[in-house]
Design a protein around this nucleic acid. Structure first.
Lengths: 126, 126
DNA sequence: ATTCTTGCAAAGAGTTTGCATAATA
DNA sequence: TATTATGCAAACTCTTTGCAAGAAT
């Protein structure tokens, strides 16, 4: 990647932000410093910064909306054997309660993925 | 809500799916049974089913992509005001430890979204 | 009879891309 | 000089919406 002041600004803005800005929000910020920057440049840079692992997009929020039944989604994903382990409601409720107690936040649904190494893989069972 | 066979089919498809289908994927499925169904109808029904809490959308994946620095992967998302609240590492570590204790699962990374109603919205601050 | 839902097509919103120009290495 | 980035605008994708016709209560 060659240097550009546009990209530098964009990276700074994301790095100093706490609001998880959208591309447009970043665009509005950069424009204060580089008034004639184009929205296309902002999109291009946000994406190249993601590809180069300097920033990231939140969640699956790329692409299309995805729909699901109403049970909660809470699983462990083993990065080695790709098993998905479903977790139980007890643990889920416990986590939700922790959130409520700490943030006075009423959890309606969750989508939790813990990625790592499962018991079997850890023991070399592959 | 009045009955329609389109909506019934759509609900069935989502309820029997394990792939978190997109609207278009649902559309392709329904078409097998109701060949002349329109994509608009699928969107309308998916959304009304969500409003009536019969299914749900995953994550924040409504609206725009959001970008973030490379540190935390752990958020509360208020479905009312769309605020995204970052959670702290203490809580994260606590959750990871719970997983480890319960499943002998070594967490490497997580992507956790708790969706619900934040403190401010609950108090009607809009 | 009234109300809700549909199919269709057009409009919106968000994002990507082609191209000529400008900046970096 | 060769390569990469930019601004602009058009194109593209996903989603929503207005409308007249059809189905459900």
């Amino acid at each position: 990647m060659k240097y550009s002041k546009q990209r530098e600004q964009i990276l700074n803005i994301v790095n100093n932000s706490f609001e998880h800005p959208t591309a447009y929000m970043v665009y509005e910020q950069v424009k204060k410093e580089i008034p004639n920057i184009s929205l296309g440049t902002v999109y291009r840079n946000l994406n190249s910064l993601c590809e180069n692992k300097l920033i990231r997009k939140l969640n699956i929020s790329t692409g299309n909306d995805r729909f699901d039944k109403l049970d909660s989604h809470f699983h462990l994903y083993c990065v080695n054997c790709h098993t998905v382990i479903d977790l139980n409601d007890d643990l889920l409720n416990k986590f939700d309660k922790t959130i409520k107690d700490n943030f006075d936040f009423e959890v309606l649904s969750n989508d939790l993925v813990f990625s790592g190494i499962c018991h079997d893989c850890k023991e070399g069972k592959e």
